[in-house]
Amino acid sequence: MTAVAVEKSAPQRTGSDAARKKLAWSSARFVLLMFFVLFFVLPIYVLLVTSFKNASETDPSHAWALPSHWSFDGWRTAWDEISPGLANSFKVAVPGALISAVLGSLNGYVLAKWRFPGADVVFTLFLFGMFIPYQAVMIPLVQLFTNLNLSGSLFSLMLAHVVYGIPICTLIMRNYYATIPDELVEASRVDGAGMLRTYWSIIVPNSGPAFAVVIIWQFTSIWNDFLFAVFLTGTNNWTATVHLNNLLGAQTVNFNQPMAGALITSAPTLLIYVLLGRFFMRGMMAGALKG
């Protein structure tokens, strides 16, 4: 990611006093930001060094030390365990994130610009639904999918993520679309365009950043989910997080394996952040505030 320093037209105060003050504040900010970089990076450091240690060194009292023998065994085992799950995770997370974005966009459009009586109630009910206690309802959810003849399939996992992602995607999209001036939509209406035509010609072309936000959010949460994945998939189509958990859950855990596994599992999401991070920020900046 490139460093974008947006130079704003800061008010120019006269006098060297003000300038010195400004410089001091700038340096203080930099120091503080660097301090927080440490806070965010330290745990990653532990993940990384532990993944290269062998069992005799993997315990919390050696957490900061570099490995005395660099060993790739953890990575090898972790890769063998997790790699079959990566493809499954992609098969769920990619379509899941895209479908969520499309549904969120349609809902957000209607709830922001093409409202029907009771739209606010629907919106509120969507948001309230986000708080459903997943742990309590896994049994009926599995039953529901079994009755639909979908149990154990990746499709059921994707469907669950799409459904439970509707509220957040709708929220983000609706807040974003609220920033598009009503006049644009009105003008299109006056020109005789229907709802879908307006959506296609006015809304969608302006939705790029918001799609980036929703797709990244959904991809991340689908990718990192464990609960739905372990209940809704079977042995032959477990996702990466279930495999990661399998490295962790043995009676005796060889800690270099789950640490390496955590890095392997996180790599695709990290890659997405690096590749799409700029769109993500741009999308949030454009969409977080309504005008």
Binding site: V37, F40, T220, W223, T241, A262, T265, Y273
Partner: peptide
């Protein structure tokens, strides 16, 4: 770069 570092932990699952 700061932004990237601060966002980074979100890429990791709670299990890890």
């Amino acid at each position: 770069s700061f932004r990237a570092v601060y966002l980074f932990p979100m890429a990791i699952s709670f299990v890890a």
